[in-house]
Simulated assay, not measured.
Amino acid sequence: MLVLSDKNVQIDDTTCPWVSKVWDTVVKHKKGDYASIIPSKYAHEETVATASFAGKYVIVKNMTEKFIYAVSKGFDPDSDLVKVGMANQTTMLKGETEEIG
């Protein structure tokens, strides 16, 4: 979107405001040097987009899922899970997110 904006292309952003809110949340985490915990399915399109806005992150579908494919590059749980923030995806039920939290 930045490339298009730089070329003076008119952009009509039709992103769901609930999705944009999650993206804004992970950007704030990134600026505060927090890792984002993103409750969701790691291969879901919305989650892939959310992770692209994040810095350090781990995506958690449930408490039994393996995390090998669901972390940011270089993610180190010993150091990256000291400061964390939750980013609730619209793909998850409230109770599922609360359980992961």
Rank of each mutant, 00 (worst) to 15 (best):
T90E: 14
L81R: 02
G85N: 10
G32I: 11
M86H: 02
G74Y: 12
T90S: 14
Y42D: 02
W23C: 09
V71R: 14
A87I: 05
V22R: 13
K21I: 04
M86V: 10
A43Q: 12
G95S: 15
K83F: 12
K66H: 00
V60T: 03
P17G: 08
I59A: 11
E45M: 00
K73V: 01
W18R: 14
S20A: 13
S72D: 03
E99M: 11
P77T: 11
D6H: 06
S40W: 08
M1W: 02
A87F: 10
L2S: 09
A70P: 00
N8R: 12
V19S: 05
D24G: 02
D13N: 15
E99V: 14
T50L: 15
L93E: 15
K61H: 05
C16F: 10
L4H: 02
A54P: 06
W18K: 12
D6C: 05
L81C: 04
K21T: 06
V71E: 02
A43S: 12
A51T: 14
G74E: 09
G101V: 02
K28V: 03
D6Q: 10
E65I: 03
Q10I: 01
I37Q: 06
V48D: 01
V9E: 01
E99T: 15
I38Y: 03
E46W: 00
A54W: 14
G85Y: 08
F53L: 14
V71N: 08
D13C: 12
M63D: 15
V27C: 05
V71F: 00
S20C: 09
K7E: 03
V82M: 04
K41H: 05
D13I: 07
W18A: 10
S36A: 10
